[in-house]
Amino acid sequence: MEKTAAYRKDVYKIEAIDVNAFYGQFHALKGINLGMEENAVTALIGPSGCGKSTFLRLFNRMNDYIDEFRMKGQIRIDGNKIYNSYIEVEQLRKYVGMVFQKPNPFPKSIFDNVAYGLRIQGIRDKKLISERVEKALKQADLWSEVKDNLKKSALALSGGQQQRVCIARTLAVEPSIILMDEPTSALDPISTARIEDLIFQLKTEYTIVIVTHNMQQAGRLSDKTAFFYMGELIEHGPTKELFTNPKHDRTENYISGRFG
């Protein structure tokens, strides 16, 4: 994506400005302003239905497919408005990858899953594709487990492995930002720990935004945390600060487990 010189790109990788979102009559996000730094992990937390997933899906325009959805305000990535008629959503999504709540590999082989993003870009060079697939699987900490049967269906893998295939699939197109929508909520504790390790390694190279229900996870992984409640951004700041010294009662009640 082109970089605009006039914008303070050094400050924020992703910035939401006065964002309001609606599903039909329902006001899902109310005047959100939030910046997220490059090569850092930002966690979005809050009770179910607070709007955090809706917010996350604004950054790769995945809400575009919902019939009743409307959005006001601006999202900037690298200083560029992404809700603009000249933005090609396909290009945006190559730059902003996404990992979903439930592992959703395609009903294809492991190799074809990871190569999918490259192939739809029109890359036909077999050597390049297999190099990138190998690199992505290594980054996703899966290479050693699957290198001998890349032709196996991804659906035959365990849940944790499937989620790592999905991460590898995202990494293979070399995005700059990775959005994660509760990536471990469907996994067992051991698989969860491995994915968390992985996220920790990835943050040196990628900007990561993660939605999570798990307070410990947010605490362990993220540099910054934002707390949402009923469509409003209640509080945000460095994770340590927010967890040890929350400014709002709501935040304190939520992180101490009094509701949610």
Binding site: R93, M98, F100, N104, P105, Y116, G117, I120, Q121, T170
Partner: peptide
């Protein structure tokens, strides 16, 4: 499943690419 479609879109696939590569097969 809708998740297949979402995953494909999230990878930057167009509608037709998603249709042809994922949904039709």
């Amino acid at each position: 499943p809708k998740t297949i479609k979402e995953a494909s879109f999230a990878m930057g696939a167009t509608k037709w690419q998603t249709m042809w590569n994922q949904i039709l097969p």
